[in-house]
């Protein structure tokens, strides 16, 4: 399971969803694996506004990964040479190369996968198992 997915997951128990502490789910005893994938620069730029940056930073800390920068990158930060003056010359998207910032973000969000472990709700404490890269959110009968 990709770390990006954690940006769109919370506790499956309805009463938790309205409680801010249920997001994000907290990885525990996580075994990580890098699964390489091609960098898609327009995709990265477009998902930027959807990222819950503070929460992603928390997850990275909890997993012992290198710190994410305190503020989210801007779309320009993701383009190689994006801050230099030649961006005004109107390079097409196809010509743009991902910056190191983009590559780092890609590595964290799309290549770093939780293969085994648990995801814990910060509200009710329920633990969801992750096995072979798949998180299981089926609830026992008394919690449905």
């Amino acid at each position: 399971m990709k770390l990006l997915t954690l940006n769109f997951l919370t506790c499956a128990i309805k009463t938790c969803k309205t409680n801010a502490s249920s997001f994000p789910l907290h990885p525990r005893d996580a075994e990580l694996e890098i699964q390489e994938a091609d960098v898609n620069l327009p995709f990265l730029k477009n998902i930027l506004p959807r990222l819950m940056w503070e929460e992603l930073r928390t997850i990275c800390k909890e997993l012992g990964l290198p710190d994410l920068p305190p503020t989210p990158p801007t779309p320009t930060d993701l383009i190689s040479g994006g801050n230099s003056t030649d961006t005004t010359e109107g390079r097409t998207q196809a010509e743009q190369e991902p910056s190191q910032t983009a590559k780092d973000l890609h590595r964290v969000l799309l290549e770093t996968c939780i293969q085994e472990g648990k995801l814990v709700c910060g509200c009710c404490g329920h633990e969801y198992a992750v096995k072979e890269g798949v998180a299981n959110f089926l609830l026992p009968g008394h919690l449905v």
Partner: peptide
């Protein structure tokens, strides 16, 4: 599980593990 770049989880459609309105 093998369709990139997407991701999949096991869940019941009446108890989905997603933040509302996201």
């Amino acid at each position: 599980q093998h369709h990139k770049p997407h991701d999949v989880v096991v869940a019941d459609n009446l108890s989905l593990p997603h933040p509302p309105h996201s």
